[in-house]
Design a protein around this nucleic acid. Sequence first.
DNA 1: GGCGTAAAGTTAACAGCGTCAAGCGACCCC
DNA 2: GGGGTCGCTTGACGCTGTTAACTTTACGCC
Lengths: 207, 207
Amino acid sequence: MPRPTNPKLRRAILDVARRVLIEQGYPALAMRPIAREVGCTATSIYLHFDSKDALIHALIDEGMELLGRELRAALAAGATPRDRLQRLARAYLSFGLENPEYYEIMFMLHPSRMERYPAENYRRARRNLDFFHQELAAALGPAAADRDLRAEATLLWTSLHGTVSLLIAGRIDAAIDRDKLVELAVAQVLRSLSPPPLLPESDAARN
Amino acid sequence: MPRPTNPKLRRAILDVARRVLIEQGYPALAMRPIAREVGCTATSIYLHFDSKDALIHALIDEGMELLGRELRAALAAGATPRDRLQRLARAYLSFGLENPEYYEIMFMLHPSRMERYPAENYRRARRNLDFFHQELAAALGPAAADRDLRAEATLLWTSLHGTVSLLIAGRIDAAIDRDKLVELAVAQVLRSLSPPPLLPESDAARN
DNA sequence: GGCGTAAAGTTAACAGCGTCAAGCGACCCC
DNA sequence: GGGGTCGCTTGACGCTGTTAACTTTACGCC
C-alpha cells in the first residue's frame, strides 16, 4: 500500500533492508537495525510499510521479478522446447543457490509469515511457473494428450524446490557433490518428457 | 544433555511441548506458555533443556523416529524392491502431510535454528534416507553399475521433500489436486528406475 | 510576513520473546 | 541440628514488532 508519502525514504528503507537481508540473512532483518542504518527511527518505517511483513513482501516481489528475468533469459537462449526446459531447470536451481537469502524469503518462509501476502502478487509470482508448463506442453506435443500438464509442471517445480531448499539449508550430506545433485535434478526434469510415466499400478494392485 | 535431574518434569515439558506444537503449530512454541501449561516457570525448563533449541531438537528426534517407523513399515509391506521403493515414497509423503508440524521442525526450520543440532542425531536421522538408497540399489541391480546411487537417492528425497514442503506451506495452486500431485511424485520416484537417465548433453552441447 | 494546517518523524511505551544470575525452600547427611 | 545440594522461582536484561501521543517540518494562503 504505497501511501502518498515521501518516496525517497521508502526507497532507502527498501535498499537497506535488501542489503541487510543479503549480507546478514533473514534472521538479522529487524526493524530497529534497519532504521538505524537508514538514519531514521523504527516507527518511521511504519509510515511507508504497514508492517514488517509488508516490507518483506516488497523484497519478495523484487526476488520474484529477478527470478522471472532469469527464467525468461534461459527461455530465450534455448533452441528447442526440450532445451528450453533444461535451461529453465538450470536457471531455477542457479537462482536459488546464488541468491539463497532471496530464495528463503520467497519460498521457505513459515506459512504464517505469508498469510498476508497479497493475492495479486501471489498470482503474479506463480506466473513464473507457467514457463515450465508452457515448455513441457511444447516439448511433449500431441503426446501430452492424456496427461495433466499443469500438475506435472507443478511437480517439476516442487522437485526443483526440494533440491534447492535442502541445499540452501545445508541439510545435504557433505559427501554428496553439490553439482552432481544439480545435474541429476536437471536430468530428472528432462526425464519427465520420456514416454508416459511408469504406472505403479502393478505394485499398487498388490495393495 | 539429560541432566541427572527430576525426569518427571522433563517428560511433562516434552509432552506439553509436543501438544502445543501439534495443536497450535511451531510459532506458538514458546517457553512461557509451555511452562504455564506444565505448571512451572519458564526458567525451570532450562533445568532440563539447555535451550529452546535443545527442546526442539528433542521433538525433532521424536519425529525422526516416527518417520523411521513408518518407512520401515512400508519397507516390510513391499514385495519387490520396486514395490518397496514406491511404498517408501508414499509413506514419506504421507508422513509429511499427516504430521505437518513435525515435518516443519524436522525439515523446514531455518538453518540457524539447526546449527546446534547434535551431529550424532543428525547422522541417525539421515539413516532414514538409506532406505531409499538401499531399495534403489536392489531394484536396479547390476544396471546401476555406473550410477551414483547415493546422489540419486538423495535426489529422490529432495524431490519428495519439495512436494511435501510446498503442500504443507499451502503454496500450491488450489487448482492442483493434492492427491494427483502426490501420485505424480510417487511415479517420479519410480521413473528413476527406468534406463540410464536421459543425458542432456545434446542440449547442453549447444551451450 | 505570519498564521493554520497537514504531513513527517520522534519519543515513550506495551507485551512478548529467549535467557541468565541470584535467591529461596525443602531435603539429606554427618 | 548445621551445612550442602537439588529443584525451582523471582526478577531482570536486551531484544522483538507495534501503537499512541507528541513534536517538528513544510507549505499554502491571506
